[in-house]
Design a protein around this nucleic acid. Structure first.
Lengths: 208, 208
DNA sequence: CGCGCTGTCCCCCGAAAGTGGGACACGCGC
DNA sequence: GCGCGTGTCCCACTTTCGGGGGACAGCGCG
C-alpha cells in the first residue's frame, strides 16, 4: 500500500523536529526539509505539505508553487510565524490550501493537519478574520447599481480594454447601442467615464 | 455584573431550541428571536449573535446590518444551511464575523461560539476554502508588472475616473507627463487602454 | 392598458485618449 | 563611467469617448 507521506519544510531545526514528532505521534509519515532545494528534491507521492514561507535558504512561496504544480492533488498549508498581507495572500496565490501560525499550540497542529488532509482549509485564528476583512471593506456599491444582463455583459467586455467598436462587433450590436448601454451603466454607477465604471464594477464585486 | 447575552435568530423553532439548549449548557445566556422584527426589538447589551440568513419573516442580512450598526463591538455570525456566494459574501458585507453551517454537528457549535466571542472568526469547513478560492483565482498578474511609485500613484488616480488633465493637475505635473506615464503603465501591463490597465491593476491586487 | 425598463439604432460635435515620435536630467547599479 | 530605468516635458496626428439630443419595439407589472 502507499503510505501517505507528509512533507514538512522548515528551516528552524528545533521547531521542525518538534512539529515532526507531534505529527508522527498522530500517525503521519513525515518527511523533513530545511531548505527550498531539499523540499523540491523530494520524490514520490505526497498527500500534503506544511511549508514555512520564510526560509533561510530559498523561498517557501516557490516551494508551494512547485508542489502545487507537480502534485495538484496534495493539500498544502503555510506554517509560519508571520501574517502580513503579503505572506497570507502570497501563500494563497501560490496555492496554499491552509494557513497556520507558529503561535498556535503545537498540540493543535495534528488536528489542523487532519483537517487539511480531509480537504478542508485550516486557518489559524486571526487569518480567517484577515480574509473576511478584505471582503467586508469593499461593500461600497451604489444601491441603485443593478445592471441589466446586457449591461453587465458589456461591462465585462469593456473591462477587457476593448473599444466601443470592438465591443459592438463581439456582441453583435452597433456602436450606437454600445454607447447607449455605456451611458446607462455610467448613470447607474454615477461614473463619469468607462474607467470609473470599471473601478466601481470591481469594487462592487460585479467584475473579477 | 453584566450578564453576557447572546442573541439567536432562527425561524425554525425546533432547531432554534436545540441550539439554544446546547449554548445554555455551555454557559451562555441565550435570547431567542424567530423573526427579523423580534431580533431587532431586543434591547440591552449583546456580546454576540447567531443569525439565520433566510428567515421566513424578514432578512437575516438586515438583522446583521442593524446589529452591526447598533452594537459595533458585538461579534456576529451567520448560522445557515446555505453557502452560496451571495449568502457568504452578503453576510460578510453585512458585518458578520463568522459563518457557521447548520450541517455542522450541534456539539461543535459551543466551541465555535466560544471562538466567536473571543474575537476570532469561526468558519465552517468549506467556507474558508470558499474565501481562499476568491483570492487564489486572481493571481494572473504579468510578471514584469512592477510599477514605479509614480506610476502606481497615477494608476490609482486614473481608477477614480479622472481625465488626463485632471490627473495632471492633482499630481502637479503636465498632461504630457501623464501621457508618458500612462504609456509606460500600459506597456508594462500589456494593456491597450487605460480601461484595461485598470482591470489588470484590480486583478493583480494593485488597486482595491 | 398604459407606464417604465430594456435593447436597439441614429446624428452631431467637442473633448479626451491613443500613436509615434523626440528630448533632457537624475539616480542607481555594474 | 556608462547604461538603464525613471520622471519630466514637448509636438502632431488619428481615433475614440462623452454629452446632448431623439426614436422605436418588446416586455413585464400594476
Amino acid at each position: 500500500m502507499v503510505t501517505p507521506r507528509l512533507l514538512l519544510v522548515e528551516d528552524d531545526a528545533l521547531y521542525r523536529e518538534t512539529v515532526a514528532e507531534a505529527l508522527r505521534v498522530a500517525g503521519h509519515e513525515v518527511l523533513e526539509a530545511s531548505t527550498a532545494a531539499e523540499a523540491l528534491a523530494v520524490r514520490g507521492p505526497l498527500v500534503g505539505a506544511l511549508v514555512d514561507l520564510r526560509l533561510s535558504r530559498g523561498s517557501g512561496f516557490e516551494v508551494l508553487t512547485q508542489l502545487r504544480a507537480r502534485a495538484p492533488g496534495a493539500m498544502l498549508a503555510a506554517l509560519t510565524a508571520h501574517s502580513t498581507d503579503e505572506d497570507v495572500f502570497g501563500a494563497i496565490a501560490a496555492g496554499a490550501d491552509g494557513y497556520l501560525l507558529k503561535s498556535d499550540a503545537i498540540d493543535e497542529l495534528p488536528a489542523h493537519v487532519g483537517a487539511l488532509l480531509k480537504g478542508l482549509s485550516p486557518l489559524s485564528p486571526g487569518i480567517a478574520r484577515r480574509l473576511m476583512a478584505h471582503f467586508a471593506q469593499r461593500p461600497r456599491l451604489p444601491p441603485d447599481a443593478k445592471l441589466s444582463a446586457r449591461e453587465q455583459e458589456l461591462l465585462e467586455v469593456l473591462a477587457g480594454g476593448f473599444t466601443f467598436q470592438e465591443c459592438a462587433s463581439s456582441m453583435g450590436i452597433s456602436v450606437e447601442t454600445v454607447k447607449t448601454l455605456v451611458k446607462r451603466i455610467r448613470d447607474k454607477f454615477h461614473a463619469g467615464s468607462v474607467t470609473e465604471a470599471i473601478s466601481v464594477g470591481f469594487r462592487a464585486g460585479l467584475l473579477k
